[in-house]
Computed example of a mutant assay.
Amino acid sequence: MSISKAACIGGGVIGAGWVARLVLNGIDVSIYDPDPEAKRKVGEVMRGARRAYKRMATNGLPKEGKITYAKTIAEAVADADLIQESVPERLDLKHKVLAEIDMHAPSSALVGSSTSGIKPTDMQVAMKNHPERLVVGHPFNPVYLLPLVEIVGGRDTWPEAIELASEIYASIGMKPVVIRKEIEAFVGDRLLEAAWREALWLVKDGICTVEELDDIMRYGFGLRWAQMGMFQVYRIAGGEAGMRHFMAQFGPCLSWPWTKLMDVPEFNDELVDLIATQSDEQSSKWSIRELEKIRDDNLVAIMEALSTQNGGKGWGAGALHKDYVRQLGKTGAGGSAAAAKARATKPKKAVKATKKKG
């Protein structure tokens, strides 16, 4: 399904990434962010996103949606079909912002939170009118390129809202994955946090430097994970006997004292200095904007390579990328009249606010 207008509350790294993905799909976006530098910061992200999209969407792009900067949340959410909240990870701030969104947004609008770890049930308590329309829509940076979005419903979230969220996010080229049970940090960040904790110990204990650790990931299993994930890779590692053989062979390792995942290194100035100094040695020759360009080019290249696999049908993120590029190209060269008409049409589905369903 298509939407015609979105609102982004918060214009930081994640919020600006949402703005870029939405605008480059031809959707008008209204932004509210009290930061006086918000317009500049969003503009920087937009420049990087345009560059990446021009490289990957060789058949053309839709006519860009219009960006407006609202003075209040009420102004931003007026007439929005999707409202994406991306404010800092403080529950009190989430409550304040979501309460204001709930007060002023159209009753049919879907509200998505970009939170990376707060449970939606804990946020819904601030929404006195329509808590049933709140979902977590947790993306990954850069939002305009990485397709994954984790969708999580809270205690009061209606099934229709989760279905609507999946359709809206899929319509802008994303891969929605609905998380079956509501837990803090969901799935993606739990995996990242486990690896991050182990990485901090390995550097702190002098086993490797940050650059050596990154090399181990990007020259090794990171390439496997990029195209198959964990379980499919391990199935292959089991040989012809598959996953059962892999589990039988490596299962005993789970009890070996290999990991410090249940322990956390003390977060102090010494640890910060160690990591930051090694990170500077690794990457200070590039500015952050230069690193963003390198990252975006690499991501586009990987997805393009995967799009040619599996007999030309594409594989994993490459298959989705292939379809997304085709979708963008349908309204290339400024956008077709049909696409413009579609953008001006209200979504056919909305979160019904008349009666609750179990």
Rank of each mutant, 00 (worst) to 15 (best):
S4W: 05
C8N: 12
V19R: 02
V19P: 01
V23R: 13
N25T: 12
E37F: 10
R40I: 13
V42N: 08
M46A: 02
R47M: 09
R51E: 11
T58S: 13
T68L: 08
Y69P: 09
A70R: 03
E75V: 05
L82E: 03
Q84E: 09
E85C: 10
L98W: 14
I101F: 07
A109W: 01
H130V: 01
E132D: 14
P139S: 14
P147C: 14
W158I: 04
I162K: 11
I168F: 13
I172E: 08
E182Y: 03
I183G: 00
I183C: 06
L191S: 03
D205I: 08
I207T: 11
T209R: 11
V210Q: 10
V210T: 13
I216G: 12
G239M: 02
W256K: 12
N268H: 04
D273V: 07
L274C: 03
T277R: 11
Q278V: 00
W286T: 04
D296M: 05
N298G: 08
T308Q: 13
G312V: 06
H321F: 15
H321S: 01
V325M: 09
R326I: 01
Q327K: 11
G335C: 06
S336H: 02
T345D: 04
K346V: 10
K348E: 08
K352R: 06
K355R: 10
